[in-house]
Write a protein that binds this DNA or RNA. Structure first.
Length: 769
DNA sequence: AACAGGCACGTCCCTATTTG
DNA sequence: CAAATAGGGACGTGCCTGTT
């Protein structure tokens, strides 16, 4: 009896096991969400579409599981990727409808001469963890959600804003039509994007003026419309009828762009209704208190803190450059191929860019050269590995330091790289000189090439070294603690809120000026112990060795105290310029309390750089990929979409998503888009050519008239000339005679009539000679 | 209960394009 | 040339529904 029982349960267990060891990849002929999850994970790990089936089947063989229905062609994997991205769109739409506000963050880059725009949004969002009530805001955590990387056709702000509207419409459309949204009565339209957008984030707050204006206008008109709709919605039929009748034919025609008689009755009434709404909205809005108006229109622009640090650092360097007495500047570091070795960030503000192009000496140039030598951005060039091995050996010997970092990447846009490079040079000055001489002598054809020669020149120039030491000290006291504050991530890996950084930004200019006023304090040998007054955060120095090394070098360097003062006071100017949002009584100060509590603006937009960087890396390993396919995958991967889908996406949704993706697949939208990119390029070339032709034509016409006028040789006639006539004579010498001295001067530089007269008479003397 | 027919997902087949 | 990717389009097949 017992034996039979045992045998029965054995059979039972075996059949259970058999049941367990069969995996159904699909239900009906539709792949399950579970299978999609698996496929997308393998794809994210870098597996090509055509090999995913093989990977799954071999795993299954190892685990002794049987699988039913897994044909899984590459084409299907491609579709699953897009479906994942579409689900992520639904998720973003739902998140926008749920959240109180969000921050839009955007940035651009170019890769192989094509511009790309990146867009993401930051806000408080549910975790989608199992068993958590996602409607409870107490469970929400700050997150930054990836939206897309897209080829940007035109850089005009109007076109960009249209692009944002289209993106918002795409999200709204995906969200509204998903079956699970319909059953939960979740609605969204593109205007929600602007209603809920309370902040925008970019590299520089100051560069965003016009964009701020345009977006604010659009948001305002949406608010007005909303208010009007609310009012007219409360009207009785008779009231509404009266209001509609009050709209004249002319007004309707003016707003339609068509002849009144060509409009259908429906069109007429729609226009009349929107006019009524706009009027009512305007009235309601005007009746609001100023506080409420500000609340309704609220939109703030923030700048990335990493960029602030980068630019203020360069302001300091610029001030040092100007602080040298004439004839005592640091050695000139003219570069053989200026444009190729140094490609400083294209995204910098124009001011800084101009400063860089001009710098042919001093710390920035020196650090760029050392960066090109020790950490070339092209992996095939430079001595990055040799640098590392040498430093490891020498530092191991000196102070048994095992972990050595690579030389800071000044050849790429890396935040704080110049300051850190200056610190490395200050600390390891002798070692670096030694290393360069090893490089020079170790070659078959001994001697220094251009870069090494310039690098040696820089290191051996005491004035350049004075700048380097000052920059290193600034980096130690300000940049390091500042970057620590703005980049310190919390337990969830989230960046600090820009709005919590008011104090530090208010303190920065005066803190820098205080050090600038007393630069020798940093060179006092007893100061290392009382670092509190000198570091921005009042903490001990990040690396005391840098300070000690600076103090050892300082006695041999001319004007080092003066340079420290210049570095810190230049940076103070920079902090004032690059923190307009934190100005006392400025945008951040005047945020209404109701909004402040609910606003999350990440302190840096490193995630933008990260997103753009990962696009460039993706392109390197997937050269056939497109921004769209990259965006769908990234959206799914980064936005916690797996958890969202597991919790909220139903079988109906999956079906719907598949259909929508197929529709877009077969619509040829991408082909059209690609053609548009090419057309845009061609159009640009055409209009550029036209411009060039026009300019040439204008120039030749001008020359013709100038030639006709000719050189006036009568000095008395010249003396009686008006300013305008003198200008013409000036141009004759410039364009026709090509007088060597006039060619080098501009009219702007000789503002007064008397000076102009002098210049023309002098030119005539030369002409007759 | 058997079956026809429509539907639509997954797959197949194909082309275009780029890169190493 | 091979490999990877995007994607246009057609077809087989399983599911569902309605009819007999």
């Amino acid at each position: 009896m017992q034996a039979r029982c045992a045998q029965h349960s054995l059979v039972q267990a075996q059949s259970n096991l058999k049941g367990l060891s069969v995996w159904n990849a699909n239900k009906g002929h539709i792949y399950l969400m579970e299978t999609r999850r698996l496929v997308l994970r393998i794809a994210q790990a870098g597996c090509p579409e055509s090999k995913i089936k093989d990977v799954i089947l071999s795993c299954i063989a190892v685990f002794s599981v049987n699988v039913l229905n897994l044909t899984l062609s590459a084409r299907t994997v491609g579709r699953m990727k897009k479906e994942g991205g579409y689900i992520a769109l639904i998720q973003i739409g739902r998140e926008i409808t749920m959240t109180y506000s969000f921050t839009e963050s955007s940035d651009g880059t170019s890769h192989c001469k094509i511009s790309f725009e990146y867009c993401s949004l930051s806000t408080m969002l549910p975790t989608y963890a199992p068993g958590v009530d996602d409607t409870d805001p107490a469970t929400w955590k700050p997150r930054t959600q990836f939206l897309e990387v897209e080829t940007s056709l035109s850089h005009t702000l109007e076109v960009q804003l249209d692009g944002t509207k289209m993106l918002a419409a795409k999200i709204a459309d995906a969200t509204m039509n998903a079956p699970s949204s319909i059953s939960r009565s979740i609605t969204m339209d593109w205007k929600d994007w602007f209603r809920k957008q309370l902040a925008q984030m970019a590299d520089h707050a100051a560069d965003q003026g016009r964009k701020h204006e345009l977006t604010s206008e659009l948001k305002h008109s949406i608010i007005i419309e909303d208010l009007g709709e609310q009012e007219s919605g409360a009207f009785s039929i008779a009231e509404l009828f009266d209001a509609l009748l009050a709209i004249s034919e002319e007004e309707i025609q003016k707003n339609s762009g068509k002849d009144y008689n060509d409009l259908t009755p429906l069109e007429r009434s729609t226009i009349a209704r929107s006019l009524v709404d706009a009027q009512l909205g305007e009235e309601t809005y005007n009746a609001l208190s100023d506080d409420l108006k500000a609340l309704a229109d609220f939109l703030i622009f923030g700048g990335c803190c990493s960029h602030k640090d980068m630019n203020t650092f360069k302001y300091g360097c610029k001030k040092m450059e100007g602080a040298w007495p004439e004839g005592e500047e640091p050695v000139l570091l003219a570069n053989k191929a200026n444009s190729t070795t140094i490609r400083l960030g294209e995204r910098d503000s124009t001011v800084v860019q101009a400063a860089e192009h001009a710098s042919l000496r001093g710390v920035i140039k020196a650090m760029a050269l050392l960066g090109a030598l020790f950490r070339h951005k092209d992996e095939d060039k430079g001595y990055q590995d040799k640098y590392l091995m040498f430093m490891q050996k020498e530092l191991g010997k000196l102070c048994s330091q095992k972990h050595v970092q690579r030389f800071p990447a000044t050849s790429q846009t890396r935040y704080g790289a110049y300051g850190r490079a200056a610190a490395v040079v200050t600390q390891h000055y002798t070692l670096l000189l030694q290393l360069i001489s090893i490089f020079c002598d170790g070659k078959t054809k001994a001697g220094a090439n251009h870069i090494k020669e310039s690098a040696l020149k820089a290191l051996n120039c005491p004035r350049t070294m004075a700048e380097i030491v000052a920059a290193a000290l600034y980096s130690l006291c300000i940049s390091w603690p500042y970057m620590k504050a703005v980049r310190k991530k919390d337990g969830n890996g989230m960046l600090p809120n820009l709005l919590d950084l008011v104090d530090i930004h208010h303190r920065l200019p005066s803190f820098c000026r205080a050090t600038a006023a007393n630069p020798s304090l940093l060179l006092d040998h007893n100061i290392a112990d009382s670092s509190k007054q000198l570091t921005l955060d009042g903490e001990p120095f990040h690396d005391t060795n840098v300070l000690l090394a600076a103090q050892v070098l300082a006695p041999d360097l001319p004007d080092v105290a003066k340079m420290i003062a210049a570095m810190f006071s230049g940076a103070a100017d920079g902090w004032n310029r690059f923190t307009p949002e934190f100005a006392v009584g400025g945008p951040v100060d005047s945020i209404p309390d109701e909004i402040r509590a609910k606003l999350y603006i990440p302190a840096t937009n490193d995630h933008n750089e990260g997103g753009l960087r990962s696009w460039c890396v993706h392109i390197r390993f997937h050269p056939h990929s497109t921004p769209r396919s990259f965006s769908t995958m990234e959206r799914y991967r980064r936005n916690n979409t797996e958890a969202f889908a597991a919790k909220y996406i139903t079988a109906d949704d999956v079906l719907h998503v598949m259909r929508e993706v197929r529709k877009e697949d077969a619509s040829g939208a991408n082909t059209i888009f690609r053609q548009a990119v090419v057309e845009e390029l061609e159009q640009k070339a055409i209009s550029h050519r036209e411009k060039v032709n026009l300019a040439a034509e204008k120039k030749s016409k001008k020359e013709e008239t100038l030639r006709a006028t000719g050189v006036e040789q009568n000095r008395e006639t010249i003396a009686r000339m008006t300013i305008l006539q003198l200008k013409v004579q000036f141009d004759v010498y410039k364009c026709i005679v090509k007088d060597a001295i006039i060619l080098k001067t501009t009219l702007v530089s000789i503002p007064r009539r008397a000076d102009k007269l002098q210049a023309v008479l002098a030119a005539l003397d030369r002409y007759e000679a």
